[in-house]
Design a protein around this nucleic acid. Structure first.
Length: 348
DNA sequence: ACAATTTGACCCCA
DNA sequence: TGGGGTCAAATTGT
């Protein structure tokens, strides 16, 4: 928190630049969009990305002004980060009869899903998840779902995730990942490779409109986080079942960095999962009040993802705007996005 | 029949 | 002590 604004705060400048870029895009849209189908398709997405990034930046700035913790400008995200503040001092839960919580890497994503798009849940991360619990959370109008890797028993994979629908924006889901995948399915996920894990996956495809990733640093001290570098990405694609958005490529890159306590994240920082070029939803499904887990077919408009992760001291947040989705997508978009991300990384 | 989900109870910890 | 996380039996789905 305090480590990001010790000198000149670049946020106002960033805000200004984003606003300017947004306006220019609007102009471009009006001129190019009229004659180019591609323009009609891409420009709204790009615009949406700018809007999202502006919104996030505003949220960050306002929250800083208010001296309250926040991660992405979303009201939901403030709860997200709570994460490892509590306990996590115990032994490994996996393989240990003790019910003490384990100290695991943890990061959160916020996923926006357009209700009328037919989607019921956040992005699929290509992993198989099995729901093991659901609980009403105090102060939240929607229950939180608890998932663990399908291969927990067979391969001892300790990856878990929690999914909760946002109170204020029902189309937004907060997904918190805990632990990394050690199962074969994770190993087989190649960088940038679309996860064709299952037949169901093929039907769960979507096109993202834009991606905004917020790389934030944090300290164990809850009051000492949110120095961050924010990256704005262009589009990427998803297909998802349950809420999870790992990025296989990143995951592999960081597999050997379990104890990575870097405070400055790059695009490859989030240790374990992070957005892949596409997501497919596994078997998880949510019941009644909150049905984010079972996702079918393609995405509709207005989907976005915000991600916040904590890796020991670090915290990572990103947002992916999935609005204006169309039936097809080009996986290469994602790579462009991340290259873009690398080049745009800056501290907030 | 097997796998996945639901859901109430239990446990841990701030 | 109570909220959050997990367990596990019952239920539901394939």
């Amino acid at each position: 928190m305090e480590n990001n604004t010790s000198y000149l705060d670049p946020k106002p400048l960033i805000l200004n630049e984003l606003t300017q870029a947004k306006e220019l895009l609007k102009q471009l849209e009006s001129q190019l969009g009229a004659v180019s189908p591609a323009g009609n398709l891409l420009l709204p997405k790009i615009l949406s990305s700018f809007e999202n990034s502006l919104s996030m930046l505003n949220g960050i700035m306002s929250s800083e002004a208010g001296n309250k913790p926040q991660t992405t400008g979303s009201t939901e995200s403030t709860r997200v980060v709570i994460g490892n503040s509590r306990r996590n001092c115990g032994s490994d839960l996996i393989g240990n009869p003790s019910k003490k919580r384990k100290t695991v890497q943890r990061w959160t994503e916020q996923v926006r899903v357009c209700e009328d798009s037919g989607l019921e849940g956040p992005l699929d991360d290509g992993y198989g998840w099995r729901k093991y619990g659901q609980k009403e959370i105090l102060g939240a109008s929607h229950p939180r779902g608890y998932f663990r890797c399908t291969h927990r028993n067979t391969q001892g994979c300790s990856a878990m995730k929690q999914v909760q629908r946002s109170d204020e924006d029902p189309s937004m889901f907060t997904v918190t990942y805990r632990g990394r995948h050690t199962c074969v399915q994770a190993v087989h996920l190649l960088p940038g490779q679309s996860q064709k894990r299952s037949d169901q996956h093929d039907q769960k495809r979507m096109k993202t409109q834009g991606t905004i990733i917020n790389f934030q640093n944090g300290c164990h001290d809850k009051t000492d986080k949110f120095s961050a570098s924010q990256v704005v990405l262009d589009s990427s694609s998803f297909s998802f079942p349950s809420a999870s958005i790992p990025i296989p490529s990143i995951e592999k890159e960081n597999n050997n960095n379990n104890n990575n306590n870097n405070n400055n994240f790059s695009s490859t920082t989030p240790d374990n999962h992070f957005m892949g070029s596409s997501f497919s939803s596994p078997s998880t499904s949510e019941s009644n009040s909150f049905s984010p887990y079972r996702v079918n077919s393609s995405f509709g408009e207005g989907q976005s993802i915000q991600q916040t992760s904590e890796v020991d001291l670090g915290e990572f947040t990103s947002e992916v705007d999935l609005s204006e989705l169309t039936s097809a997508f080009d996986p290469t978009d994602l790579y462009l996005d991340f290259d873009f991300l690398d080049s745009l990384s800056f501290d907030l």
